[in-house]
Design a protein around this nucleic acid. Structure first.
Lengths: 345, 345
DNA sequence: CTGTTAGCGCCTTCAG
DNA sequence: CTGAAGGCGCTAACAG
């Protein structure tokens, strides 16, 4: 069994109250006793039992995080940001994922009751009403990702704006026919990105939307790429996220389709690996870790008794790399350029 | 405030003991009362307070996981496996990372005391003695990754064997000079991989080790690749993990060095994106998520009162892809092959 | 300044 | 089969 506060108290020959005081620093304890307690605590390897603590303090110093999925670098980055912020504030991180099914999400939320002081939930499917119903109304809740307005702060990226800007960029670069690889049905982020794509096309008469199904996974990008090849390539492909863009790239490579020579390719998210692809991927940059960090700080503020932080939309920025460079420069010495290589030979 | 067991009891007009009994299923409660309690609990949205529960039950139903880093797909996959297993067993997952600094690791461990029933720790730097000193001796602990033998079960991959096999493979494929991009100093996994590389070379007279520094990050792979180009390319490059291989690939691309035409490239881990690279990356396949899952099951077994599960070494397997294919096949119709393209022209 | 004591919410003997 | 009561470890009044 682990040492309890009582063990420390008797070892230091003081009362439990005194031990509690020196360990929590608040009240003043005179020096001789103080260090005696500290010594006893250290030598016994005493660490307060968090269960007991949470029972009497009414808080757990833990933030619950519920994510829809745990695949790929996007979530890896998000968790990294969240973890950094929780640890910076001395909080713990209870992680779970909900997969999207509203019932399961509700169960996960309920299971966290009493274990966490606040929740960060990314739920691209479930609506806020369901969430509210599943948690104690007093538990602070910060939402991640797009969704309807509601009473909880929500941190989102401007999916529509980002997709609009990217489509715009492609159009301005001279690509006329632009296909879009969509995200999962019902996913709000995905829907917004599709909207942005459509809206941008609508500003240019003569352009036409061409939309392929996808689910945010690499495989679906691969399938979309193959489909495009079979049906006829557009000038450019805009995938609703980077993972699918990676899949597309693979499909193109398999078929000997050159990017950006034969078709341009763009993604969304700017996951770390995007710049290491061949060609480096043009994408919509999202401050993923930053959003995670901010969500935790939001929670911390609320817990500190402050106002709930305001909802906020993060502006994504265009990250233009080689995958959409229509007019390639002359290759520098030692650089290769497939097209020209075959012409030169 | 949330409903407590007392609220449920009075709503159902029974004692708290009875409520506890029906909710924990163990004892027999006669039917009329039973359903009355259930109804009351449901209508009040009652969920037992986990802090109180852990206080009286001496368990938290939570597994603590401490990882050295949270970058990239490797950890994403690991967490995914762990999360799947915890949720399958109705356990919670408390996540933290320790960065490698032994003191910080100790602090993180201590902070988890009382919050978790068992720990899964991946600590490529800290030794087991330090870990033991930082946790209550009775807390089950499962170690992830290579390390010295100790009293705790340890799940590792055969780094040495994997690296040996890969080096062997490269040698057999006809590559004579093989450079190795090493992992971080002091990292045990990295050291083992280096050993495997060295050992395989030692079996072939006339070969010589050539080792470049790295830290498992993409950037260090990029630097290593550039260094290799500057100093003169070997026949093949074996990076101690896939992230660094990705960095190398980028360096080669920048310089117009063709993979595998000019130099072969191999990695380690087989992170999901490896097969989507250009060229798809030959690597050592590690069942990452599987290991995470297994670690949790190990913990669960111990908690269920069983014996501590045995240490286990997972055998990695060689995943040969295009990045090490010296003799490329004739391209199928619609396939491209840079080298041949330039010869044909 | 320090000690005593009453809960926090729950489970679990022990009586009835 | 059900109720009453003690205790898990800790904090926070309230006394001394």
């Amino acid at each position: 069994m682990n040492a309890t506060i009582r063990d420390v108290a008797s070892a230091a020959e003081v009362s439990v109250a005194t031990v509690s005081r020196v360990l929590n620093g608040s009240d003043k304890v005179v020096e001789p006793t103080r260090s005696r307690v500290l010594a006893a605590a250290t030598s016994l390897g005493y660490v307060p039992h968090s269960g007991a603590r949470s029972l009497s303090m009414q808080r757990t110093d833990t933030i619950g995080v519920i994510l829809p999925d745990l695949h790929g670098e996007f979530f890896s980055e998000l968790i990294r940001g969240i973890d950094a912020a929780t640890r910076a504030r001395g909080l713990h991180l209870l992680l779970s994922h909900s997969h999207g099914d509203p019932d399961e999400a509700a169960a996960v939320l309920r299971a966290m009751r009493g274990r966490v002081d606040a929740l960060v939930v990314m739920s691209p499917y479930a609506d806020e009403a369901m969430l509210s119903a599943s948690i104690s109304g007093s538990t602070p809740l910060v939402l991640l990702g797009s969704g309807g307005a509601g009473r909880h702060p929500r941190l989102a990226i401007d999916n529509r704006g980002g997709a609009f800007a990217m489509t715009e960029h492609l159009l301005e670069a001279g690509y006329r026919s632009i296909a879009f690889v969509a995200g999962p049905q019902g996913n709000i982020e995905a829907a917004r990105r599709l909207e942005g794509y459509r809206a941008a096309l609508a500003t240019r008469p003569g352009t036409e939307a061409r939309i392929l199904p996808g689910d945010f996974g690499e495989e679906s990008g691969l399938a979309a790429g193959r489909l495009l090849i079979a049906q006829g390539l557009p000038d450019a492909v805009f995938a609703a996220n980077d993972m699918m863009a990676i899949g597309c790239l693979q499909a193109f490579r398999e078929a000997g389709v050159d990017v950006p020579g034969d078709v341009a390719l763009a993604g969304f998210d700017d996951i770390p690996v995007a710049r290491f692809l061949d060609p480096p991927l043009t994408t919509v940059g999202v401050p993923i870790a930053e959003i995670g960090r901010h969500a935790v700080e939001c929670c911390a503020e609320i817990l500190a008794g402050g106002e709930a932080c305001a909802s906020r939309t993060f502006a994504p920025d265009l990250v233009v790399r080689a995958s959409t460079k229509l007019n390639k420069k002359k290759p520098a010495p030692g650089r290769r350029n497939r097209k020209e290589a075959s012409h030169e030979g």
